[in-house]
């Protein structure tokens, strides 16, 4: 089963290396990892998606918690949460195919952020399956040139922040 963990860490150099090093050294299965600033200047929030059973998941949390720069870990799988990824997709687009792509983009509530004679770049945020679905359609019908996807970020619903969970 997949777990989404919100890991709050000290905003210091080397912390991300520390975390990714620990994950690979302990051979944990990590599906995605995404880091960014938070509402507090000295805190970075890292969202990690872990694949594994309860025991493995507990080990990931316990081992990460041992790192001195890790302030707090909360499991967003245990609470209602919003989970999003962002994708930028460069797809082959000629004058003839452009309108079909625009239709697809509208269906997915994505947006077109760049167009030229041969390609279009599409931006989509959403959960993983939605992005997968769009990529599938675009690739089958038009051909994708390249994709850039972020790791998943997540936030719990309701008023309680991860640091107080």
């Amino acid at each position: 089963m997949k777990h989404t963990l919100a890991v709050l860490v000290e905003n210091k150099p080397g912390v991300l290396t520390h975390i990714s090093g620990l994950i690979s050294r302990r051979a944990f299965n990590i599906e995605s990892i995404a880091a960014g600033y938070t509402e507090e200047a000295d805190t970075t929030r890292i969202t990690i998606v872990v694949e594994g059973d309860e025991i493995e998941q507990e080990q990931v949390v316990n081992q990460l918690s041992k790192l001195v720069d890790v302030i707090k870990i909360s499991d967003l799988t245990a609470v209602e949460s919003i989970q999003r990824e962002l994708a930028l997709i460069k797809v082959k687009a000629s004058a003839a195919t452009r309108s079909d792509i625009i239709n697809i983009v509208e269906i997915f509530r994505a947006s077109i952020v760049d167009v030229n004679r041969e390609t279009m770049v599409i931006e989509l945020s959403g959960d993983e399956t939605k992005i997968d679905a769009l990529c599938q359609v675009l690739d089958d019908d038009h051909g994708i040139i390249e994709i850039a996807r972020t790791g998943k970020i997540a936030l719990s619903r309701g008023p309680i922040p991860a640091k107080e969970q």
């Binding site: 080397g14 290396t17 090093g21």
Partner: peptide, 14 residues
Amino acid sequence: IRGITTPITKHNYL
């Protein structure tokens, strides 16, 4: 040495 000793220390500083 900070990078080298990260997996074998409880914590380290530069």
